[in-house]
Amino acid sequence: MTNSNIELSTSEQPASKGNVYFWSLRQKFVDSDDDVPEEAQQVMYYSLAIGHHVGMIDCLKNELVCPLDGYQSWVNAIPEGEARRKLQGLITFGEINIDSTHTSMLALAVDGFAKDENSPYCEWSSTLIRLLGEIEREPAIYLIVKRRS
Rank of each mutant, 00 (worst) to 15 (best):
Thr2Ser: 11
Asn5Cys: 07
Asn5Asp: 10
Glu7Asp: 06
Glu7Ile: 10
Leu8Cys: 05
Ser9Tyr: 10
Ser11Ile: 13
Ser11Gly: 08
Pro14Gln: 05
Ser16Glu: 07
Lys17Arg: 11
Gly18Glu: 01
Gly18Met: 03
Tyr21Pro: 00
Phe22Leu: 08
Trp23Leu: 07
Trp23Ala: 00
Leu25His: 08
Phe29Met: 10
Phe29Tyr: 14
Val30Thr: 09
Val30Ser: 11
Asp33Cys: 11
Asp33Gln: 14
Asp35Arg: 15
Pro37Ile: 11
Glu38Val: 14
Ala40Ile: 11
Val43Gln: 13
Met44Arg: 11
Tyr46Gly: 12
Ser47Ala: 15
Leu48Pro: 07
Ala49Cys: 07
Gly51Asn: 03
Val54Gln: 15
Val54Ser: 15
Ile57Pro: 09
Asp58Phe: 03
Asp58Ile: 05
Cys59Gln: 13
Cys59Asn: 15
Leu60Gly: 03
Asn62His: 08
Glu63Lys: 06
Glu63Ile: 06
Leu64Asn: 01
Leu64Pro: 02
Leu64Gln: 07
Val65Lys: 00
Val65Pro: 01
Val65His: 00
Pro67Cys: 05
Asp69Phe: 05
Tyr71Val: 00
Tyr71Gly: 04
Tyr71Ser: 03
Ser73Phe: 05
Trp74Pro: 03
Trp74Val: 00
Val75Ala: 08
Ala77Arg: 09
Lys86Asp: 10
Lys86Val: 11
Lys86Asn: 09
Leu87Glu: 01
Gln88Asp: 09
Leu90Pro: 03
Thr92Asp: 10
Thr92Phe: 04
Phe93Gly: 09
Gly94Glu: 04
Asn97Trp: 13
Ile98Ser: 03
His102Leu: 12
His102Lys: 12
Ser104Asn: 14
Ser104Met: 11
Met105Ala: 12
Leu106Gly: 06
Leu106Gln: 10
Leu108Thr: 15
Val110Ser: 02
Asp111Gln: 15
Gly112Thr: 07
Ala114Tyr: 00
Glu117Met: 07
Asn118Ser: 04
Pro120Trp: 04
Tyr121Pro: 01
Ser125Ile: 04
Ser125Asn: 00
Arg130Asn: 15
Arg137Lys: 15
Ala140Pro: 00
Tyr142Thr: 06
Leu143Phe: 04
Leu143Gly: 04
Ile144Met: 12
Ile144Asn: 08
Lys146Phe: 03
Lys146Gln: 01
Ser149Lys: 05
